[in-house]
Design a protein around this nucleic acid. Structure first.
Lengths: 409, 409
DNA sequence: CAGGATTATCGAAGCGCTTCGACGATCCCC
DNA sequence: GGGGATCGTCGAAGCGCTTCGATAATCCTG
């Protein structure tokens, strides 16, 4: 605003800026950019601001209010080097003398420069953004989703990436949009269904991607997940080790087993197989997680097999009701009945008694997903199924079964 | 890869493309762009691909594997119009004949065109991205945060915006980075502290922003929040209406009252004031939410004032323990004791009995935040404190107190 | 100490889009 | 039916960055 020359009138800058040879070209460029729309509402076309490469020297730090964007060119000027040099300082793609580097860094610091994300994306074909597609509503336990999302975001920042949040209900259209617009460099998908329709699109558009979850056909894809089969097995093992002979898995809701992610099915498989190997009698019931549902299931289990002393719970919301119901029915945990949960540590810790559990390594999943994505961006196209081995932590809800009538044979 | 001419050798394209007058200019432009870095790892500088404006006609849909980007220029060519026309079809900023529009839309469809986000951001000074800063860990109940985030994301899409996920622990640096890089058009901040250090930065950088939560000094800012004072009052009113005389508020953890958001304090204020107005005796205890903490607090409340029959719970995690403890202590809910919760509907519904509650309107908050942000981008700089009035839904955990000894005077 | 290799820097082109001004072609009103 | 307004389209510039090739300056190495 401090150089109020009229548009159209050629501005014959004599203020000594830059090589003379290019001046004419520069100043014949008409200026039709008036700062941010927000600020442009008053006096729409009245007072254009010269934003060419060669402003008068006294203009330093002035138009900040209108358009706070500091450009690389300004940094270059302030540091007394060319724009490309500044770029190389930033990208470290060519060697720069310590002296120059320091000058440039000082200029960056003093001007508070941040590279324009769009410009960078356009020129470099890299947006430094990872798209994360999370379920809007799913069978997954919300805090776990959140924890993964946060871990992804935090880890992404370690790689200088930001995270774009997409909802799963954008579906294949969302994937296409991101792949097509170059908005993100890679995608991380959560809540993967066995036969997820986003996967073909990923393949077709050849988008770098990481799945959190395991689809039926994972050929050529990078996947991260907890090893749920081993998880089920670990639970069975633990109960077997403690001397339990009759065990039950209280699982996810009905729908989960058919429709979805397969993690529930994998847990069940692992549990049943290991139970068989260890000579346990295993039951399984799907559970919606409400108090009523849990009560009904527990009643049926105990009716059908009153000798059941070991429980594995996979549905987080079934945990409080289950504990409450066991208490009410007079079955002491862990003295008479043992409970193993598959849940985040936090849930296990704030239950009473604190639960022996296999934790859902949300943090780890998020972190690994980002690393796999970054590896792909580095050129590692290798497919990889990244199954995290389960960790069972013994707390206060499981104990060795007192040698009662039905001891191990 | 299918046009393997050597770099440096001028490529005298005779394949008839575009007006002759510009050809020379176009082909003297050197090509130094080799598709995506991913693909460039093999044969680094050996086989550049011609990506100028004027590919040979038979090239249609060829280099898709290497660089699936369809450009506006290609759409224009296919539709037989100029690039600017395509742009205007997309932006609707100038009128376009139906005929032309149809041709362009057909071309867009058939090529699967998506505008390059970076290019668009660079040229238009608008990224179509909203940055959402969420707490990494906070006193807020995680599912509520998640619900807000999802609502923001969904609503943002209605406005053609995407959402960038930031964590609060990036703090002021994060705000500066976003404001400086033009990565987002506006910011939405959650978990606002009374004296939030991000606020000065927001003011200083003049970034369009919406706060979800209410800081101490909200001058010139757009804020959305549940009206917690009215919430506290509504709870007091409801219990008073039912004939309760001695009531207690089981609140958030100690820390929340000092350090943070003030929503807890505002609830308390509203509760106490209204209780006084209605002639109730009101107590208040901070509660960490664990079983032990809840048990201790409940015991002390009942010891100090055994006639307490009305409870308000603000800490979601205290709800299951509280209900469990009341049951154990033989106080029937709602027959003898009433419980009002301040929590998401989902929590209220899956408790047993279903809880009378003031819901946390997470969806609504998210939605409003986006609308306020968009309004700012439209030029509405008006500050606004957007307090959502509470809704108390009566369910099965509150009932009129049977006219006992201590009836209303 | 000549000449090739290396280092540090610069200039310029171009990424794909938006937007301005220009300019025919229509339209309408007196 | 002539002249101004409107409509629909085009060409070109420029957004701020990256990166190529070029070019001095410096560094060996024999």
């Amino acid at each position: 605003m401090d150089i109020p020359y009229l548009p159209g009138l050629p501005f014959m800058g004599k203020t000594g800026c830059g090589p003379v040879g290019v001046e004419s070209k520069r100043f014949t460029k008409q200026c039709h950019r008036f700062g941010r729309p927000t600020a442009a509402t008053s006096a729409p076309a009245a007072r254009p601001v010269n934003r060419s490469y060669c402003p008068s020297p006294d203009r330093t730090r002035r138009d900040g209010m209108e358009d706070s964007m500091v450009t690389l060119a300004e940094v270059a000027r302030q540091a007394g080097v060319s724009p490309s040099t500044v770029s190389y300082v930033l990208s470290r793609k060519r060697s720069i003398s310590d002296d120059t580097r320091r000058k440039v860094e000082a200029a960056i610091e003093s001007l508070g420069y941040h590279p324009h994300a769009g410009a960078r994306a356009l020129a470099s074909n890299r947006s430094n953004i990872l798209a994360l597609m999370v379920p809007l509503r799913s069978d997954m336990y919300v805090p776990v989703i959140m924890e993964i999302a946060m871990a992804v975001t935090t880890e992404a920042r370690e790689y200088g990436q930001d995270v774009l949040l997409l909802t799963k209900d954008e579906g294949t259209r969302g994937v296409r949009r991101i792949a097509g617009s170059g908005l993100a460099d890679a995608m991380i998908l959560m809540d993967i269904e066995l036969d997820d329709d986003r996967i073909p699109v990923l393949r077709e558009t050849d988008t770098p991607a990481v799945l959190i979850g395991l689809p039926a056909d994972s050929a050529g894809l990078a996947c991260v997940d907890l090893d749920f089969e081993a998880t089920g097995a670990a639970c069975a093992d633990h109960l077997a080790d403690l001397g339990h002979r009759d065990v039950a898995l209280i699982g996810e809701g009905e729908g989960v087993y058919q429709r979805h992610t397969g993690f529930a099915a994998r847990t069940l498989t692992g549990f049943q197989r290991r139970a068989a190997e260890r000579g346990l009698r295993a039951m399984h019931r799907a559970c919606e997680g409400t108090y009523e549902s849990t009560a009904g299931i527990l009643a049926r289990i105990l009716e059908e097999r009153p000798s059941t002393t070991g429980f594995v719970v996979q549905n987080e919301s079934a945990i409080p009701p289950l504990l409450s119901l066991l208490r009410l029915s007079g079955r002491a945990v862990p003295e008479e009945t043992s409970v193993v949960a598959i849940c985040p540590d936090q849930v296990a810790l704030q239950s009473s008694p604190r639960l022996t559990s296999v934790s859902i390594p949300a943090q780890e999943m998020g972190r690994r997903a980002v690393r796999l994505a970054m590896a792909q961006l580095e050129g590692d196209r290798a497919e990889s199924i990244n199954l995290i081995p389960p960790t069972l932590t013994v707390r206060d809800s499981t104990a060795a079964l007192a040698a009662a009538g039905f001891a191990a044979s």
